[in-house]
Design a protein around this nucleic acid. Structure first.
Lengths: 209, 209
DNA sequence: AATTCAATCAAACGATTGTTTAGTTTTGCA
DNA sequence: TGCAAAACTAAACAATCGTTTGATTGAATT
């Protein structure tokens, strides 16, 4: 193994996401990653700074994406919104552990440096979406909606669906009460996307019929 | 102090909500509650069974409420929906610690008995809302929406707003970028309610203009 | 007054926590 | 080849973890 530090971040992301920060021990992590327990202190300084490293390393991936929508889909706010929804659905679906860590850290607000990194990351993405929305409003294509609430609605909906669907049969059958066939992740993903696009269309678009 | 068991549940709810299950020690809890550490095992058997007791004791409050909407606001689905939104906004706002515990337990899915209790509680409330929605659909007042997604959207939005607003200045200023005055809990509560009512109106109601 | 039983306590249980130490191995460069 | 720096290890560190023990208190019952 070459990149032991990177591998530790990878394994830690998975374990912290699955069992929580306090619920994961250094020894469990070291064993899972196949390294000596002293390596965590050696590479990161402390367990706390390891979370920090996860947030900062993995978080960068999501930082620049939304900004890149701007040149691609030029001057069509609605197309951009669709892309944003698609991006967030995929992001939450593909990085459940990372998302668990992020939102748990926000909720607990114990490790202040971590919370600071997250706040910066979130604020960046939020203001990008806000910009798209306000662009559409000023272009006369979108209604004058409550922008922060709209953003929170999108993220909150996706989180709620993807978090709950992993859980017990009772809630699972709630999603698919009649059909007995297995509900796959991609089915859920498509359904959330379709729902949100429909919701945003009615919430956002000015009807000119 | 008379009801030491009840008081322990009260304090444990606050601490588990604030610091998480693994992040709260028995000694910290005992100290905060002003009882001997042996009392937790004495009353509940174990730390794990204490969470179970919290969920079951506090959870009952929310079980029967929605069912009671039925006789009160008879035969007006939209009025019921407004009431449901109001109820959920208040519930999440007034019981942040309880909600933190519930959703963290769902996300971690470590303690299976706890998850089972929660699933039962959630399933009960969900099916009540589902019934209201389907009533409205069959009465021809509501559009034929994706019911589970709609419910998840409501809950997810409220959670997202109330959870994030407790956090750092950067996200707070996102909510109120221009005004410098303090954002109060009740302001947020009113704003989420107004947003959701507006959203549901467009999402749900069939326009007969 | 004697007995019973639940409530409460300080103290100790072994296990596990995150971190450090002191020593060894490996690596890359002169 | 020699040597310093980096990588890595087993072992120990003190602290804390959840739980149990055994003794003591208090109030109610016989």
């Amino acid at each position: 193994m070459q990149d032991k530090r990177g591998h530790l971040i990878e394994v830690a992301e998975q374990l912290f996401g699955q069992y929580g920060f306090e619920g994961t021990s250094i020894r469990q992590l070291a064993k899972e990653a196949g390294v000596n327990i002293a390596m965590i202190s050696y590479y990161f300084g402390s367990k706390e700074k390891l979370v920090q490293a996860i947030i900062e390393t993995k978080g960068q991936r999501f930082q620049n994406y939304i900004r890149d929508l701007d040149p691609v889909e030029n001057a069509d706010p609605w197309r951009k919104i669709e892309k944003v929804i698609e991006f967030y659905v995929n992001m939450f679906s593909n990085n459940p552990h990372f998302q668990s860590i992020v939102f748990r850290e926000v909720a607990l607000a114990q490790r202040s440096e971590v919370a600071e990194s997250i706040a910066k990351m979130v604020a960046g993405n939020m203001s990008a979406i806000r910009q798209i929305l306000e662009e559409g409003i000023q272009a006369g294509v979108f209604r004058q909606v409550d922008v922060p609430m709209t953003v929170a609605m999108m993220v909150g909906t996706i989180r709620q669906i993807l978090q709950y669907r992993r859980i017990s049969d009772q809630v699972l059958t709630f999603f698919e009460p009649d059909s007995s066939e297995k509900v796959t992740e991609s089915m859920i993903r498509d359904r959330v996307y379709a729902f949100l696009v429909d919701l945003f269309r009615q919430h956002l678009l000015i009807r000119n019929t």
